[in-house]
């Protein structure tokens, strides 16, 4: 499979000794949607901006579409579409004017009206950017990345702060681009976004990749696709023993969380009766019990002991 992005041994150290990226390796295949998932401050933006050629790495090699920044900078720019984490596009230009402006930078590219239709902003084409909603602005930002008809699309937190409907609209745009043969690298701290949108995900923490695979593969590493969470009422003779809980049939891991318990379970129908019997034997009464499918969030929690949103 052709490789669209390859970076090896990427380091980025800022003044003051903060190591934002700490030995990061990555390979993104052509035609896939690849997600960098991690909490704020994990080094996602620094990484993507190095790959975009907007920052210099302290060390490491970067190859984009088989080319290097520096020597092939201009040619690469023609082939990339980039949406930064926070760009405020010109307020006093209309949507169409902004797209025409960005289109004019590329030697060849997409038709502005076609892009307008694709991001469903044709009706707003003559509206000033300052009058757009957050979701519309974000779609326009992505459209500015699409208007050069890129092979490779970089999106840094494309849906942060958007309402659910705007997020879904953006996901459709990204899927459409991928179906047209394009490659996408996006960063996000939303696990559902990574699960639904990305073919493969790299979980990033502390400037390095701590897990890599398809969302399903990553969840499978938990050893159980279900998560059982429960609380017991206060009191009782002795605290529950995590080692005992982990020995319950079909349970592959147990940990305390927020005063309750969180079990990774392969087959809830097998585990639950045994769990309840175990609690009764220990003289504890259930205060709450929920069962849900495991998510990438659980993978992150299992790997780091922290939640994604905690940063």
């Amino acid at each position: 499979m052709a490789i669209a992005i390859r970076c090896q041994g990427l380091y980025k150290r800022y003044d003051g000794d903060v190591c934002a990226v700490d030995g990061l390796d990555l390979e993104v295949y052509a035609g896939e949607c690849f997600g960098l998932l991690g909490p704020n401050g994990a080094g996602k933006t620094t990484t993507i901006e190095i790959l975009e050629g907007l920052r210099e790495a302290t060390a490491g090699t970067v190859e984009i579409l088989g080319r290097r920044w520096g020597r092939h900078g201009r040619a690469l720019r023609e082939a990339l579409g980039i949406s930064l984490q926070e760009t405020k596009l010109p307020d006093k230009l209309t949507v169409r004017e902004v797209l025409r402006l960005f289109r004019s930078f590329y030697a060849r590219g997409a038709d502005v009206e076609a892009v307008l239709a694709r991001i469903e902003l044709t009706e707003k084409a003559d509206t000033w950017v300052s009058k757009l909603s957050g979701g519309q602005r974000q779609r326009l930002a992505v459209a500015c990345a699409l208007v050069g008809d890129p092979e490779l699309l970089f999106l840094d937190e494309p849906t942060t702060g958007l309402d659910p409907q705007s997020r879904r609209q953006l996901w459709d745009i990204i899927r459409g681009f991928k179906e047209g043969g394009g490659t996408v690298l996006l960063t996000t701290h939303y696990m559902d976004e990574a699960e639904r949108l990305c073919d493969r995900v790299a979980i990033v923490d502390g400037g390095r990749v701590i897990a890599l695979g398809t969302p399903a593969e990553l969840i499978a590493t938990l050893g159980g696709e279900h998560i059982v969470e429960f609380d017991v009422e206060a009191g009782g003779d002795e605290p529950l023993d995590p080692a005992l809980l982990a020995r319950v049939r079909s349970v592959s891991g147990a940990r305390r969380e927020n005063g309750g318990w969180r079990l990774q379970v392969r087959e809830p129908h097998a585990a639950l009766p045994e769990l309840i019997a175990h609690l009764q034997a220990a003289g504890r009464r259930l205060a709450r019990l929920t069962i849900r499918h495991a998510s990438l969030e659980d993978v992150f929690v299992t790997l780091t002991g922290r939640r994604l949103r905690d940063g």
Partner: peptide, 13 residues
């Protein structure tokens, strides 16, 4: 400040 310069630098402009 608006990151617009940086955004423009990300194009072949």
């Amino acid at each position: 400040i608006r990151m617009l310069l940086k955004r423009l630098m990300a194009t072949p402009m």
